[in-house]
């Protein structure tokens, strides 16, 4: 069992109820915009406190309102690729990549900088400033930064939007390799049915 989620998240007036369990691989969270996909992702990352419920990933309880468990984001070991990427503007690509790696305990690091740079084909970018990167480059750096932090699972918010077809294929290939070679549970937020049908092992639909 990788994701085991049953939460109520409040966003303003609305209560978003989300309930799913998946056996591993890629879980897709789909639904129209405004359904609360990003809010659920933030709840899993520990950035948004659910009103009630329970979140467990890979057997580790991250949140449980009854047992009063609420791990802070830094204790959850979740790699997040945000939709807006959020690369640190005051650090070069290398500084961004190493940020999480330096903070991760050695036993959680499963990839080296060289392996990630090779895996994502970002070695030539290491000395660049984030603002000088193209959309596809920045996206690969964001994935690399998340992987180097030694995550136990990955959350990806719309990783395939705003990319041309060639870039999409490249990122899809990367996601499939993370699933197959690294065996990390992945939760993918997407509104694109075709992508979901192609990638996801489990599909969770969120209704507005």
């Amino acid at each position: 069992m990788s994701f085991d989620v049953d939460v109520t998240v409040r966003r303003g007036e609305r209560a978003i109820v989300c309930r799913f369990a998946s056996a591993g691989g890629i879980t897709a969270l789909v639904g129209p915009s405004g359904a609360g996909k990003s809010s659920v992702l933030e709840a899993l990352a520990g950035l948004l406190r659910p009103e009630a419920g329970r979140i467990a990933v890979g057997g580790t309880v991250l949140f449980d309102s009854l047992a009063r468990v609420n791990l802070p984001p830094e204790a959850r070991a979740c790699g997040v690729m945000f939709q807006d990427l959020r690369l640190f503007p005051h650090r070069r690509v290398l500084g961004n990549l190493l940020y999480g790696q330096r903070l991760a305990p050695p036993e959680r690091r499963f990839l080296s900088l060289e392996e990630v740079a090779d895996f994502l084909d970002i070695a030539p970018l290491l000395g660049r400033r984030p603002r000088t990167l193209s959309g596809g480059e920045a996206q690969r750096v964001a994935i690399g930064r998340a992987l180097l932090s030694g995550p136990r699972f990955l959350l990806m918010d719309e990783p395939l939007t705003a990319l041309d077809d060639a870039r999409r294929e490249a990122i899809i290939a990367v996601i499939e390799r993370i699933r197959d070679e690294l065996a990390l549970p992945i939760l993918l937020v997407s509104h694109d049915r075709a992508d979901v049908a192609r990638l996801a092992d489990t599909v969770v639909e969120l209704r507005p």
Partner: peptide
């Protein structure tokens, strides 16, 4: 300072002071 960058740092393993 964009609080979203601070949130990203937290998910990468940094505590509030870091």
């Amino acid at each position: 300072v964009d609080p979203r960058l601070e949130a990203a740092a937290r998910t990468l393993g940094a505590g509030p002071w870091q």
